[in-house]
Simulated assay, not measured.
Amino acid sequence: MNFNDLKLYLIIVVAGATLWFAKEAYEYNKLQNYLSSIKETQKKTKESKALTFEQQLELAMERQKKLQIASNQNKADKYMRKLHSKYTKEEFKEKLDICDYFTDLYLNNRTEENEIKYVKACDPMYH
């Protein structure tokens, strides 16, 4: 075994050890994050047990409201993506301009006839 082979061998050993230490540090960090999330969950559980029924109900209603808002936003985004894929950019802009026109017309003069025009111009179900 000559000197160059020994250098190559040492480089491989050092690189392998470095990779092993990096993997161990990553797994240790992942474990610490997992344990801290468990402690946080336990803390929230203890806090929620100390809350009265009314407080728990209020927290649950807030969570549900946030979920509902997120769900509605997802539905709206999905609907808009569907419309964008259905029409070309020019067609979509034209339909939005028409909708804006009839919206202004309806807001300035709230009649049943203008409301029907507004709904038909802005609701893609009528397109």
Rank of each mutant, 00 (worst) to 15 (best):
residue 23 K to H: 04
residue 116 I to L: 11
residue 61 M to I: 12
residue 84 H to F: 10
residue 89 K to F: 07
residue 11 I to C: 12
residue 95 K to P: 00
residue 25 A to G: 01
residue 19 L to K: 02
residue 6 L to H: 15
residue 99 C to T: 00
residue 103 T to Y: 00
residue 83 L to W: 03
residue 121 A to W: 01
residue 10 L to D: 13
residue 50 A to D: 13
residue 27 E to T: 02
residue 12 I to M: 05
residue 23 K to E: 02
residue 47 E to R: 06
residue 94 E to S: 05
residue 91 E to N: 04
residue 126 Y to T: 08
residue 122 C to D: 01
residue 96 L to E: 02
residue 109 N to V: 07
residue 127 H to S: 11
residue 63 R to T: 06
residue 25 A to I: 02
residue 118 Y to V: 02
residue 123 D to Y: 10
residue 97 D to I: 00
residue 34 Y to R: 05
residue 15 A to Y: 02
residue 74 N to I: 13
residue 120 K to R: 13
residue 25 A to V: 01
residue 16 G to S: 06
residue 23 K to N: 03
residue 35 L to K: 10
residue 78 K to I: 09
residue 5 D to N: 13
residue 91 E to M: 05
residue 60 A to V: 11
residue 99 C to K: 00
residue 49 K to S: 11
residue 28 Y to F: 06
residue 1 M to F: 14
residue 2 N to T: 10
residue 35 L to Q: 08
residue 25 A to C: 01
residue 96 L to I: 07
residue 36 S to M: 06
residue 105 L to Y: 03
residue 44 K to R: 12
residue 22 A to W: 05
residue 116 I to P: 05
residue 38 I to K: 03
residue 16 G to I: 01
residue 43 K to T: 14
residue 44 K to F: 09
residue 10 L to R: 14
residue 63 R to C: 05
residue 99 C to P: 00
residue 86 K to M: 10
residue 120 K to E: 12
residue 22 A to L: 08
residue 93 K to G: 01
residue 2 N to R: 08
residue 17 A to Y: 01
residue 46 K to F: 12
residue 92 F to Q: 02
residue 71 S to M: 13
residue 32 Q to F: 00
residue 49 K to E: 15
residue 68 Q to E: 14
residue 61 M to F: 10
residue 122 C to N: 03
residue 70 A to F: 05
residue 72 N to E: 08
residue 127 H to L: 12
residue 84 H to C: 09
residue 34 Y to I: 04
residue 14 V to Y: 12
residue 50 A to V: 09
residue 35 L to S: 06
residue 13 V to I: 15
residue 98 I to K: 04
residue 78 K to E: 14
residue 94 E to G: 02
residue 41 T to R: 14
residue 42 Q to G: 04
residue 79 Y to D: 10
residue 22 A to V: 08
residue 111 T to Y: 04
residue 84 H to S: 12
residue 27 E to H: 02
residue 78 K to R: 11
residue 46 K to S: 11
residue 66 K to I: 14
residue 14 V to S: 11
residue 11 I to N: 13
residue 47 E to Y: 05
residue 75 K to H: 07
residue 115 E to I: 07
residue 125 M to Q: 14
residue 62 E to I: 08
residue 44 K to D: 08
residue 120 K to Q: 14
residue 112 E to V: 06
residue 41 T to N: 12
residue 44 K to M: 09
residue 53 F to I: 13
residue 44 K to N: 10
residue 91 E to W: 04
residue 60 A to T: 15
residue 93 K to L: 02
residue 68 Q to L: 09
residue 40 E to P: 02
residue 8 L to R: 06
residue 102 F to V: 01
residue 125 M to S: 13
residue 10 L to Y: 13
residue 106 Y to D: 00
residue 24 E to T: 00
residue 44 K to G: 06
residue 91 E to T: 05
residue 83 L to A: 07
residue 38 I to Y: 03
residue 115 E to Y: 14
residue 33 N to I: 03
